[in-house]
Nucleic acid binder design. Structure first.
Lengths: 231, 231
DNA sequence: CCATGTGAAAACTTTCACAGCG
DNA sequence: CGCTGTGAAAGTTTTCACATGG
């Protein structure tokens, strides 16, 4: 039975992997690849082949038995799952600091149909200017502009101390989803999806894994030493 | 039995949540809080109280029954788990574009003991300059400088097309861990921990969740309409 | 004969329920 | 009496194994 996506709850992990598959498919299409097997896609993304097939089967049956998947076709299907073609997503960014500016200059994001139409800041020296051709407004104008321009996505790139207030204003303005880059836990109404990316947390996690890997390596070394001692 | 951390394999999700707890504990300490219960920490981070207790119990027993946890003490313990005090982590950044510059100016990262000591780029106009007081070198000097300075963490902030090559050079230089911000799947030896953050993937995931939430809302509306029609 | 698609088993994660301690 | 710490249950995700179709 072919499942139709949307209704059923797709796991977070699957959504995350699907985005990775899409990135790989884009890369492969540029490289001129025409077909690929689940095993190849698995090896490129670092998951198992069964996982790739299981993930894709949530959304439909895209492969040909004995052959694999058609790169261009699968890419189109996965793009559709992420809403490409349905509409172009209008975005705004709150906080025109170094991170905000870096996000606005990202070509990658634009490539997937996301488009910044406004930026907001509190600093009077920034208000009225343009960053990457995007006009910078006062935060006081946020609600009016988000409503008027039908902005779908709000990106929070302000310091932790203002993040909660910005999230509240975005929700009141009727934003459809939030991407939070401030190092602060934020509660939003359940109907407004929010994803948080905390860059400093990634550093902390990495340092944990480094210590963990090095401890494992030391323990293996002790095993080897013990074994050679018993020779 | 009190488990000692390090040896056992802690799940990725637990490591991630521990980093979030640490962020909250820092915030609470600044706010002057002295103790907190698992339920409070849970509510602040959006997980269940049992989850908080289960996560913490992997590393030890830090609470007092009937009272909860001492904020300052728990913060110290969690910091220790992430390697605070053990050493200060020397970092380098490869790719002095807008994202690289934004990462270098992040005060947050420095706060946790991470310290940039070198930046690398290919652009001759950037080589020899300083960004945020950090010297910019040619990528050709990477191996020498990483080895000489004992740099632990390499941050990849170059375009996707150069990411794999940069990762290879970092590994050859004996880097201990990698944080990859390039939208590219990279393979590194198993002994070198690597975390990848793909900003454009976060946008894609968010658009999936927005559509998913809005479809759910529409279906609920149909339910309500049907119910009122049957009155 | 090859590789997908998929039920079922295994592994893992979260929640539950409550014993035990301050 | 309240809240932690923790085995065990429930729930979820991943892997396995193989039927099915090009």
């Amino acid at each position: 039975m072919v499942k139709k996506y949307g209704l059923e709850d797709v796991s977070k992990a699957t959504v995350s992997r699907m985005a990775t598959y899409l990135r790989c498919l884009t890369y492969l299409e540029q490289q001129g690849a025409s077909t690929l097997s689940s095993r190849e896609l698995a090896s490129l993304t670092g998951v198992s082949a069964e996982q790739v097939r299981q993930d894709l089967s949530v959304f439909g049956r895209f492969g040909k038995r004995g052959t694999g998947y058609d790169v261009a076709h699968l890419k189109t299907e996965v793009e559709a799952i992420f809403g490409r073609g349905v509409e172009r997503w209008k975005c705004c960014i709150v906080g025109v600091g170094s991170l905000g500016t870096a996000l606005m200059s990202s070509r990658m994001v634009q490539k997937w149909g996301f488009r910044y139409v406004a930026a907001f800041d509190r600093d009077p020296r920034k208000i009225g200017t343009h960053v990457e051709r995007i006009p910078v407004y006062s935060i006081d104008e946020l609600k009016t502009i988000v409503r008027r321009e039908h902005i779908a996505i709000g990106v929070i790139a302000v310091p932790a101390s203002s993040a909660r207030n910005v999230a509240r204003i975005l929700c009141e303005a009727g934003i459809r989803g939030i991407l939070n880059f401030a190092p602060q836990s934020i509660k939003v109404p359940e109907k407004v999806p929010m994803l948080s990316v905390d860059l400093s947390q990634e550093f902390l996690k990495l340092s944990f894994y480094i210590q963990s890997a090095e401890q494992r390596a030391r323990e293996e070394q002790i095993q080897i030493d013990a074994a050679s001692h018993n020779e």
